[in-house]
Design a protein around this nucleic acid. Sequence first.
DNA 1: TTATTATTTTGGTCAGACCAGAATAAACCA
DNA 2: TGGTTTATTCTGGTCTGACCAAAATAATAA
Lengths: 239, 239
Amino acid sequence: MNITRKKRTRLYRDIVAQIRQLIQDGSLAPGDQLLPERQLAEKLGVSRSALREALTALDSMGMIDITPGGGAYIRKIGVESLIEPLAAIMLKEKESVYELLEARKIIEVQVAGLAALRASKTELYQIKEAATEMHNDVINNRDAGESDLNFHLAIARASQNGVLYNIMEMLSGLMREAYVPSRNELLRDPVHTQVWCQQNFQIYEAIKNKDPEAASRLIREHINTAEERLRLIDDGEAE
Amino acid sequence: MNITRKKRTRLYRDIVAQIRQLIQDGSLAPGDQLLPERQLAEKLGVSRSALREALTALDSMGMIDITPGGGAYIRKIGVESLIEPLAAIMLKEKESVYELLEARKIIEVQVAGLAALRASKTELYQIKEAATEMHNDVINNRDAGESDLNFHLAIARASQNGVLYNIMEMLSGLMREAYVPSRNELLRDPVHTQVWCQQNFQIYEAIKNKDPEAASRLIREHINTAEERLRLIDDGEAE
DNA sequence: TTATTATTTTGGTCAGACCAGAATAAACCA
DNA sequence: TGGTTTATTCTGGTCTGACCAAAATAATAA
């Protein structure tokens, strides 16, 4: 298990690469605990400081989870770990929120069409579940933002395309990351959220009926109305 | 009984946040050199080890560039730094290449439509440039893969949507990252690449004429044919 | 001036130490 | 015996100081 030191490469990079390799090989599965720093350092033939830098990098990448006194554990990686740096890259101006919405619209409209063609029974069930959960949130006057996102993600999952699903997950995360006070205001409005839920159930029906055109159209309308209302609120605040 | 476990703040995270803040504030611009480790550590009131872990994290995130003996410099961040971890998440099976193509198709078709509506003169010029460059590559029998990607990225830039552009950049990077030997074979076929170039010029014309329908349709055909050929090659190899 | 050689600076790595909190073993009491 | 408390070990977090190699810079010689 000794590291083979290449020239000029930072030692910590070698170690990171090695651990990532072990994860990819399956030698280290998510949830596994790696050896304590001192032992691992000795096993790899490096000092604790060097190993520590590697662990720091892995931690900042979200690949491992370190708890003081407890140890370091392999974490199953998801796009969530990339959303924060993504936000730093993509969301530099306020206007980018609308670019985000535009991107979401483009992708979700198509994704809904795919979902209508491909959704399995269990995925249909999950979509329905998400819709009802959001409905519950709304009638209980709770924040429906999260359940709404779950609804859209369930649809993306039903598209049977992992890449598209991950992109949707990113965009949802960015939506959350972006500072959009108007969004909260939108989610608080009981009238709109009511309509919103109704739309969601219509979308579910369209997907269930394997009607991609209807699903796409409904999603487009859904997002369009949300976008318009957001713009109204923002413009109102500007004065 | 509240069991919310308090998370001890890791020092390196504070430092990372602090430096990122300085970048966002503009106090540190890309290209700037930060203080030497020893000085910076003293200035921040932490040990060199702690600071070093922060720098390691920033380095692994691609936010700074460290050269031994030279110093550490702020680097302009782009999605490139995220592509490698993204690949680890998204591209676990071979079939995902086709998911990637499907995602590209969905996004690019729409993006081309937007570009037809919004492209400025300089962006039109850039698209044309990219197309001719690819043409040059083809007639000189060079690898046209990179210039082809540039062509598509130029279109994405013309869509005036930074989020979509970044997504396209990601997908292009993933395309490169994915091990697709058939893609190389595809790019070597002189007949096919010839047609390819012709299609690119047609797409350029459609965008120039502000005809979103035509642009979308042409892009769709473009990618469809490429996908079909890829599938043919892959199926042929499978036997 | 230019080329060469010292010297300093900078990051890279290492070793060992101490602390605080978590995990575990031991002791204790009911 | 079983559960609670206490002591001990283990683990990560941080610090100090040291040495090395390569890069940057200053000093020197041609």
